[in-house]
Measured scan of single mutants.
Amino acid sequence: QIFVKTLTGKTITLEVEPSDTIENVKAKIQDKEGIPPDQQRLIFAGKQLEDGRTLSDYNIQKESTLHLVL
């Protein structure tokens, strides 16, 4: 699982696999929060994550925290 922290300070927990794409993660966030993926920007280690890449591409491991910017 990974954590996604929103600007409001809320933390969302997501069940993911390293092979999941960023697009996939955004879809999971939409399921939980109702935020359309095209409004979501995910930041990890100061980098904006691209939809077509996977979590493992960015070396995002379990218990990692991503930041969600709208």
Rank of each mutant, 00 (worst) to 15 (best):
Y58C: 05
K28V: 04
S19W: 13
L55M: 05
I43Y: 13
Q48C: 15
F44A: 03
Q40W: 06
R41M: 15
D57S: 13
F3C: 05
V69I: 12
P37N: 07
L49W: 01
E33W: 10
Q39G: 06
I29E: 00
R53L: 13
P37F: 14
P37Y: 14
Q48F: 11
G34W: 03
D31A: 13
K32I: 14
G9I: 02
L14Q: 01
L68D: 00
L68C: 04
D38P: 06
Q40E: 02
Q1I: 15
I12W: 06
L42A: 01
G9C: 07
I29V: 05
S64E: 10
K28T: 03
K26I: 03
I29H: 00
Q30C: 14
Q30V: 04
Y58I: 03
G52S: 12
K32D: 03
L7K: 11
A45W: 08
E17T: 14
R53H: 12
I60Y: 02
Q48L: 11
K28G: 03
E63T: 07
L42N: 00
K26V: 02
D51W: 04
G34P: 03
T65P: 03
K32S: 10
I29Y: 02
G9N: 06
D51P: 07
S56G: 11
V69D: 07
L66K: 01
V69Q: 10
Q39Y: 09
V69T: 09
D38I: 10
I2E: 00
D57Q: 07
V4Q: 01
D51S: 07
T65S: 05
Q61C: 09
F3Y: 15
I12R: 01
Q48T: 13
T65Q: 06
S19P: 03
L14R: 00
K26D: 00
E63D: 15
K26L: 04
N59Q: 11
P37I: 15
P37C: 10
D20K: 02
Q61G: 14
T54Q: 07
V69L: 11
D20E: 09
Q61S: 10
T8G: 11
D38Q: 11
E15W: 13
Q61A: 13
D38Y: 12
P37L: 13
L55W: 03
T13G: 05
N24V: 13
T6A: 05
T6G: 06
K10R: 12
K5Y: 09
F3T: 06
E23H: 13
T65M: 09
D31E: 13
T6I: 13
P37T: 15
T6R: 06
V4N: 01
L42S: 00
N24F: 11
L14C: 04
G9P: 02
K32N: 05
L70M: 09
N59D: 13
T8F: 11
L70V: 12
D51T: 06
T8E: 14
I35L: 06
G34H: 07
R53T: 06
D20I: 05
Q39E: 11
G46T: 04
F44Y: 15
Q30H: 12
D57N: 05
E17C: 15
H67S: 09
D31F: 14
Q1W: 15
Q30W: 13
I43G: 03
D38L: 10
I12L: 08
L49K: 00
E50H: 09
P37A: 15
V16Y: 15
R41V: 15
L14F: 04
T11L: 13
P18T: 09
G34N: 08
P37Q: 12
I43E: 11
K47D: 07
G46L: 04
L49C: 05
I43A: 06
G34E: 04
P36Y: 06
D31H: 10
K5C: 09
D51I: 05
T11F: 09
K26S: 01
Q39A: 08
P37D: 04
Q39I: 12
E33C: 12
T65I: 14
K47E: 13
E33K: 04
E17P: 03
Q30F: 15
K32L: 11
K5S: 08
T13I: 13
Q1L: 14
L66G: 02
A45R: 11
I35G: 03
I35F: 13
R53Y: 14
I43T: 11
Q40L: 07
G34L: 05
L68K: 00
I12Q: 02
L14I: 15
I22L: 05
L42Y: 03
K32R: 10
K26P: 00
R53E: 05
D31Y: 10
N24E: 14
I43L: 12
N24D: 13
K47A: 10
I12K: 01
T8A: 11
T13Y: 07
I22S: 02
I60H: 01
D20H: 05
D20L: 05
T8W: 11
E23L: 11
G34I: 02
K32E: 07
Y58M: 04
I60D: 01
I43R: 05
T11D: 04
A45Y: 09
Q1G: 05
S64T: 08
E23I: 09
P18W: 13
H67K: 08
K10F: 09
L68M: 09
D38V: 08
T54S: 08
D57E: 09
A45H: 11
G34Y: 04
K32Y: 07
Q48E: 15
T21W: 05
I22Q: 02
K28S: 04
P36K: 07
I2R: 01
T21L: 09
Q61T: 14
V16S: 04
I12Y: 06
G46Y: 05
E50G: 04
G52R: 09
I35M: 05
P36T: 06
I60M: 03
H67E: 14
I12V: 06
Q1H: 14
A27D: 08
E23C: 11
K32H: 10
G34M: 05
L14V: 09
V4D: 01
V69P: 01
I60T: 02
N24L: 14
D51C: 06
Q1Y: 15
G9M: 04
L55A: 02
K10C: 13
V69E: 14
K62C: 09
E15H: 14
L55P: 01
L42H: 00
K47R: 11
